[in-house]
Nucleic acid binder design. Structure first.
Lengths: 136, 136, 136, 136
DNA sequence: GTGGTCTAGACCACC
DNA sequence: GTGGTCTAGACCACG
């Protein structure tokens, strides 16, 4: 399964899942029309509360990322996938290379994340950003 | 001021501040012996409650990052600063370049962050990571 | 209830509670897996503010004594309980006998405590102690 | 010097000093008429703020333990020393023996202190205690 | 129901 | 002036 929420990360499980579904759509790992696992199934696999999965699907539907078809299940919406998957995949290798370099220098994941957040929110790095999703 | 927590990011303000102080120490922006702003002063600057700052300082003291001297103020601990600041600053330019490239491709900060978290937690990218600080 | 902080002792309530929980774990009165009272419940019983209890539980979690499960409650951690409970219970009767003797001689609790702290910090009494938790 | 406050114990230095002076009087280590060190001298020796020493002396005078004679210094009051010194010294060996036994069993000073506080506040141990100085 | 964060504001302790 | 504790009460997140 693609989804791996970390219950001890401090970030709510439902939020982690939402982000992971969005990312899978962005990379093309999930494509419009694809069916998502049933709520109960997914909850069992991830050993989390079914209510949590329900909330994830509900919010993703609200955002237009998925479609809930009563009685049939959840499907990736046809209108999803804003950036081209090719673009994002190119991005993956760029980011992977950067992380690998930092990792090789002995930085811990936490240190790398702090570095990432600081740079992402630095206007000198992303000049046109007006209001960004500052996360840390 | 160096610190800019985002109250609407979903991540608790006190956690954002803790990470930002830690990062400032890691980059060498704050050095052992440096005095931090007073709790009330910082709270005013950031337009948050002094209790929130108190919690940040208290937890950073527990972690050994700062030292609280009753009646005198808060200071960066002499024992802080694990990775060499030079190493982290080298890391900054690596990460800045990667983010700039992704930004240039038109990805939003949220998309970039999802990409980052997915790669940070990908064992193919950081092979020696066993259990890491999965944050999203 | 086991816990009886004294608000007029000069020692912060939250610290007294932390010590009392730790002691209950050490004696085996609280065992790994046991559920603690809810924060609001305990606050009501002790006639203190729920935030104070929250701080106690939070710090005990940091120390690894308890585990906080969001939505379910607070539980004694499986890894708690360092000295054997039998050992501590043996210690209880030793200490109880000593206190009873001092009490019988007409010493007040404060006098007994000063005596205790002085002896605890006397290197002739605990030779291997190098730097101990001098508390008074 | 008899006095050894521990600045990192959490208990205010001035309180530790007050207790230590009281205890010295109780054991007879300081006797009525004995002169205490000058405030500045003591502050220097203990590397603490002179204001702190001033506060200690002021409060001890208020309690009638010492007498401040303008221009001459501080002296143990004639009316001090409530319990007989012999009584307290007998108590010392009782308590020392108990602590030594607990120490030999491998209990840490903190564990011993928690045990002490719990027993001191246990009505089964000191039956006639009505309102005691619960300290933890 | 549980825990978690935050605010507002009081009062104390130390320097 | 500094930090430290506590209260009261609101609102959110998770199960």
């Amino acid at each position: 399964m693609l989804f791996r929420p970390n219950p001890s990360s401090g970030v709510p499980i439902y939020l982690q899942l939402i982000e992971q579904v969005r990312h899978a759509v962005e990379t093309g790992a999930l494509r419009p029309g694809d069916q998502l696992p049933g709520m109960r199934t997914l909850a069992e696999q991830l050993v989390i509360n079914p209510n949590t999965v329900a909330r994830v699907y509900r919010e993703l539907e609200h955002e237009g990322v998925i479609e809930l078809r009563h009685g049939s299940g959840a499907f990736i919406a046809e209108t999803a996938a804003r950036p081209s998957a090719a673009q994002v995949r190119r991005g993956q290798s760029i980011m992977a290379r950067a992380i690998r370099q930092l990792d090789d220098q002995g930085l811990t994941p936490e240190e790398i994340r702090r570095l990432f957040e600081a740079e992402l929110n630095d206007p000198a790095v992303r000049p046109r950003s007006v209001k960004g999703g500052n996360r840390g």
